Amino acid sequence: MTIGSTPALLDCEALAACLGTAGSVVLDATFFLPNQGRDAAAEFRAAHLPGAQFFDIDAVADRRSALPHMLPQPAEFAAAVGALGIGNGTHVVLYDANSFMASARAWWMFRVFGHDRVSVLDGGLAAWRARGHSEQSAPALPRAACRFEAAYRPELVRDLEAMRLLVNGAGVQIVDARSPGRFTGSEPEPRAGLRFGHLPGSRNLFFKWLIDSETGCMKAESELASAFRSAGLDLREPLVTTCGTGVTAAILALALYRLGRVDVPVYDGSWTEWGGRADTPIATGP
């Protein structure tokens, strides 16, 4: 689905045709979970799309919070993206090297701060390479700073207190993007100190089930709709997405956007916040 003329997903050929043109900026938003043992910034320095700049969700974040990569204040986001040469008229294209982590998170962040001219490269760096497109290791030339005015959309974000209301029966479906083992509590969390399980009443839809295992691209819209229905979710009713730290929850939000649900919020703190507290109810098992 698109808002105006901007597609939520962009294929490699479409990006190759506009790469380096005025009015567009490409950002590598790769993020790895702690247990993956990889360094996103180092991999970016080794190879990235021509002209791309690195977008670090741990840097463009609320540094005052003890939780990882929480949303920054609007002025902080505006300053960070403006320094990357992004203005309110810029088409931002995000990609990553880890199954939409965290290109989808960054896509959601731009939307939260009022910017709809934003797309995600379908299949990311792996798809770009598979199609034989060029890469570079040299740093991109600095871009002239732009003025970016953020317009915060609170309707696309849920916090702890809002989620407390939802688990007490506010009539909103909660969908969790974590793996089935993490959802049921049978597998450990990648971050230490968290309880195991899920928000009471939530449903599980592992984000990888929305991605084609052969191409690394997001599945067709009919398959996405089927996956949500199979998880026991009604696409006509209100939804909110969650995960470990608000990263893969944005992949669900991106998939739902493609299905016409442009109104779906993400629980920013997700399980790291909820499961890290002693005063929040949890459920285990399916």
Rank of each mutant, 00 (worst) to 15 (best):
M1F: 02
I3F: 13
P7V: 12
L9Y: 02
E13I: 02
A14Y: 08
A14S: 13
L15C: 09
L15D: 07
A16H: 15
L19G: 15
G20T: 01
S24L: 13
V25Q: 03
A29E: 13
F31I: 08
F31N: 09
P34M: 06
Q36V: 02
A40V: 04
A41Y: 08
A42L: 03
H48R: 08
H48G: 04
F54D: 05
F55Q: 00
D58E: 14
A59L: 11
V60W: 05
A61F: 10
D62H: 09
D62P: 12
A66R: 13
L67K: 12
M70R: 15
P74R: 14
P74E: 10
A75M: 08
E76Y: 02
A78K: 11
A78W: 06
A78Q: 03
A80E: 06
V81Y: 07
A83F: 04
L84S: 03
G89K: 00
H91I: 11
L94T: 05
L94V: 06
A97T: 01
A102H: 05
R105F: 06
R105S: 10
A106E: 04
F110L: 12
G114A: 04
G114M: 03
R117L: 05
S119A: 15
S119Y: 04
V120W: 01
D122K: 08
D122W: 01
G123N: 01
G124S: 11
G124P: 14
A126G: 11
A127L: 06
W128M: 13
W128E: 07
R129L: 15
A130Q: 15
R131I: 00
G132E: 04
H133D: 02
S134W: 00
S134K: 01
S134I: 04
P139S: 03
P139R: 08
P142V: 04
A144P: 06
V157F: 06
L160K: 14
A162P: 07
R164E: 11
R164C: 10
L165V: 07
L165S: 15
V167W: 01
G169H: 13
G171F: 03
T184E: 15
P188Y: 06
R191P: 12
H198E: 11
L199G: 08
G201N: 12
S202W: 12
F206D: 14
F206I: 08
K208S: 14
W209S: 15
L210P: 10
I211W: 10
D212P: 11
A220D: 12
E221H: 07
E221M: 06
E223N: 01
L224A: 09
S226H: 13
A227H: 13
G232R: 14
G232E: 05
L233R: 03
D234Q: 04
D234L: 12
L235P: 11
T241N: 10
T241E: 00
A249H: 02
I251M: 10
L252R: 01
L256H: 02
R261Y: 05
R261S: 05
V264L: 01
Y267E: 12
G269C: 10
W274K: 07
A278Y: 00
T280Y: 03
P281G: 11
I282L: 15
G285W: 10
